[in-house]
Design a protein around this nucleic acid. Structure first.
Lengths: 221, 221
DNA sequence: ATAATATATGAAGCGATATTCATATAACGA
DNA sequence: TCGTTATATGAATATCGCTTCATATATTAT
């Protein structure tokens, strides 16, 4: 057995599972959840239809797994930024950048999520939504902590409670990401980093900190 | 013929159409789009199933009409606020309040929109999305004008282009509205008016204007 | 090599329900 | 009143693709 932790059999299972997910994602994002049959997915993944049911109980389940895989990516990447050892302002900057990267790297899944059914049976739907919300909220809590620390250190002015600041900051970047999603050429996202930071911090940041961190007022450029 | 513009026959048609829409909305919001059959809607509306098809080509079409009715409400109400004769800051304040009102008054439709399929056939979906986007963008354009005027008048500091400010402002309120949608008790929306205005304007607004408009810094309260 | 076990296959079944349309009913006009 | 048109009805149909499961194939153990 090679140095890998898992035995060959299991590694292969995981590979197969991912191949099915990838095939499904490709077709879903091209034609939409409802317009893709399990037959098609099986063909694209080069498995028999019965095999899909070895990995996923229902078609819904396949969709759910795809979305949860995305949620995990968000959670991991954003957490790693916010948990890192860094200044508050840098964390926030990197947060914006990381979100942009995750969006670019997962465009098909993201489009799928926003375009299609979120679940047929209401139980499934509720379950999925709850999990997604939990995942988002954990990130929001980390963001909140960043703001709270910044406030305590006096880097930020006390214009709102840290949780509201976190929600606002997150919503703001979402707004620009949606814009970019609709029209990537007209509204390139990473370009908006400065806009977002400006709107949020231009004068929220105490003056000396602003100077140290290179946040500039347009008028002074 | 009474003073009404439309003949009785047509008025009745419209009433019937709306009765069907209301019945559908009630059931959709209770059980979800996929878990409601045309039979059920017919029964709830006290019409025969065939009658529904006199008004709506497909079940999708029924859903679409519901969402478009909502989009129109948003468009009209928000436009009326932004087109009114008022100061820029007041327009923005009223914008936030109006959005909150529309949300409260249309909770079932809004929940339906965010919880369910956005369309089965990709043509239908594209069409609906295009219409929704157009509607939102028209409002964004009006918001942009408000910011542009404010910038020209020197009420706002030039920290970003007016369109970005409009997107940011709209996204910010959306963020808090979603929070409220998830958890109305914990995050009452109208309460957030000050938070939103603070985050956005506390120091974006030139100092003398801020004083005139009663925008206060928490620290000075 | 052979049996035992695990895994893969895909044709067919099956339930669900959106939609149709021939018929019935009502409204209207002469 | 009666004929003509418009509208309403709902049983029957037609479709559709998800899921099952008996069979085939591959893998492993003896």
């Amino acid at each position: 057995m090679p140095s890998n932790a898992l035995p060959r059999k299991e590694r292969e299972q995981i590979r197969h599972r991912n191949e099915i997910l990838d095939a499904a994602l490709k077709l879903f994002s091209e034609k939409g959840f409802h317009n893709v049959s399990m037959q098609e997915i099986a063909k694209e993944a080069e498995f028999a239809i019965g095999t899909l049911y070895k990995f996923f109980d229902t078609k819904e389940d396949l969709y759910k797994s795809l979305v949860l895989r995305l949620a995990e990516t968000f959670h991991e990447r954003l957490s790693s930024v916010l948990d890192a050892r860094d200044s508050e302002l840098n964390k926030l900057r990197k947060f914006i950048v990381a979100k942009g990267e995750i969006f670019s790297e997962n465009l098909p899944t993201i489009r799928l999520y926003f375009a299609e059914a979120r679940g047929a049976s209401s139980d499934t739907k509720t379950d999925l939504n709850a999990r997604l919300w939990k995942s988002r909220d954990e990130v929001l809590q980390k963001l909140t902590r960043v703001f709270r620390n910044g406030l305590r250190k006096g880097i930020f002015n006390d214009i709102a409670d840290p949780y509201s600041l976190a929600v606002a900051f997150d919503s703001l970047s979402n707004g620009f990401l949606f814009l970019w999603l609709k029209n990537p050429d007209k509204h390139p996202y990473p370009d908006k980093l400065d806009v977002i930071m400006n709107i949020f911090f231009n004068q929220l940041v105490a003056k000396k900190e602003a100077a140290l961190d290179g946040i500039k007022d347009k008028k002074n450029e």
